[in-house]
């Protein structure tokens, strides 16, 4: 009996542990992006627009995970901006983040009227994803990449902003 209690305790502890370690997706509106983009900071932001339904985006996610880990102690902030539908938040997005053990911050941008904000990010953005925006306001640096990026490419940009 004691043995079983022990096992149950281990399982419960394990569950609570993974639960507390969950990288919780937070939902934002476009104002969040505007605020971030206009903030006066010497942090280099790497924002990747993606979605769980977008195969090339999924392929590319490890690049951002690696970059996030590599620059964890530096003034670099990587954010995965999901364009998944809000109804998919609990059934698709959060389970995906948990399953893949993604540690990079994830935001669900809940703005389904795309035409109202795509141009406000960048007039050059056609609307396809993956799409990555890199900026450092104090260095007056900004770049939009509307395709998959390589780790080397991102790293070079980040290094150049040091």
């Amino acid at each position: 009996m004691k043995k079983y209690i022990g096992i149950v305790l281990v399982i419960l502890f394990g569950m609570s542990h993974t639960m507390s370690a969950t990288n919780k997706v937070h939902v934002e509106k476009f104002a969040w992006y505007k605020l971030l983009r206009n903030s006066k900071t010497d942090t280099t932001y790497v924002l990747n627009f993606w979605a769980t339904w977008c195969m090339p985006c999924i392929e590319e996610l490890p690049v951002f995970e690696d970059i996030n880990k590599k620059f964890t102690n530096e003034k670099v902030k990587v954010i995965l901006v999901s364009l998944d539908h809000i109804k998919k938040m609990d059934i698709t997005l959060q389970p995906y983040i948990d399953k893949k053990g993604i540690t990079t911050e994830v935001v669900l941008l809940n703005e389904p009227d795309f035409n109202s904000w795509i141009d406000l990010v960048d007039k050059k953005w056609e609307g396809s994803i993956p799409c990555t925006v890199i900026f450092n306001t104090s260095k007056k640096f900004y770049q939009l990449i509307e395709r998959q990026v390589s780790e080397q490419e991102l790293e070079e940009i980040i290094q150049s902003l040091k």
Partner: peptide, 10 residues
């Protein structure tokens, strides 16, 4: 002219 998020043509 309008814009939308879509799947990129591969």
């Amino acid at each position: 002219f309008t814009k939308a998020i879509g799947c990129s043509i591969k």
